[in-house]
Design a protein around this nucleic acid. Sequence first.
DNA 1: GTTGGAAAGTCAACAAGGCTGACATAAACT
DNA 2: AGTTTATGTCAGCCTTGTTGACTTTCCAAC
Lengths: 168, 168
Amino acid sequence: MEHSGGASHSESLLFLTDDQLRKGIEAMFFAYRGFTADPDRILEGMDYGRAHHRALHFIHRSPGTTVNNLLAILGVTKQSLNRVLRGLIEDGLVESRVGRADKRERHLHLTKKGGDLERSLSDAQRARMRAAYRAAGPGAVQGFRQVLEAMMDDSTRRQYQSLKETSL
Amino acid sequence: MEHSGGASHSESLLFLTDDQLRKGIEAMFFAYRGFTADPDRILEGMDYGRAHHRALHFIHRSPGTTVNNLLAILGVTKQSLNRVLRGLIEDGLVESRVGRADKRERHLHLTKKGGDLERSLSDAQRARMRAAYRAAGPGAVQGFRQVLEAMMDDSTRRQYQSLKETSL
DNA sequence: GTTGGAAAGTCAACAAGGCTGACATAAACT
DNA sequence: AGTTTATGTCAGCCTTGTTGACTTTCCAAC
């Protein structure tokens, strides 16, 4: 058992056994389920799903963002995003305003109704994150974020970081 | 900027601002994309997807596991899992053996071919995890796992922990 | 021994949310 | 004027999840 990939061990914390890595992988898998569980519960029954949650989140986060912008962040096709946005716009949760400088662009904003749903979703998700942070203790938070950042693709990390610095 | 949700700041690490929590949430979202990117790339083109990867992973992890066992771990319906398993069995990646003690049960094992694919998938995923751990540094790894564990649902955490202690 | 119920498998239908390709429109750029 | 860009839309497909209904197998309790 242990270090099945060959090479000698020694618990020098920067030599990482396959077993340590596997635990991290499984933790990531199981934790993501918890991460999405509360919003999923809120959304089930409504006509919406995880894709709607993501759109609401990033529109809330960057009000006035364009469709193209959102596409880049979400990493899906415009057809896929369009289906989601159409529903949100029809139901009056999102407002699509023609750009002033560039009239081809649509700038997206949450309505009162959209903002309300976004808040209930993010409240639930934040509550879980807060509880996890508290349970793990002060030191853990930084490590958590560092590993997650390092796990991203380079292009994703750039998006995350430019987003990170944008105040809400 | 910062602490948009009101309340005073002070970086007392256990007072968590909405902004800190939001960063964690977005990090989780973006990191999960990276987490699945490499296996997804390997599987595209084959007839398989993420669901097949998960089945292969946990069968490799707990050889001889029953279908019911796997259902509980994966958290999907038997119909959904069955479709995935059927494909893997037909293609000779997974072997389904009738239980000796209880002949209703099917015990699942990877074949040579299934083991090969599982290895290539987990090699890729481990490589990314290893790189992330290295980049984040020794201290970060523990914090990462602690927060993820705390983020899981209680029942999921129990599964994770009993799995965690099982040596491979 | 018969029967009740659990484990497993199967069929059918459906939904969400990805994808591609093709095409339309308007606006901006050159 | 012609090209590129931003967006939207139609049609169709795939994966992976769902529910419901039904069968077969087989253990275990009566």
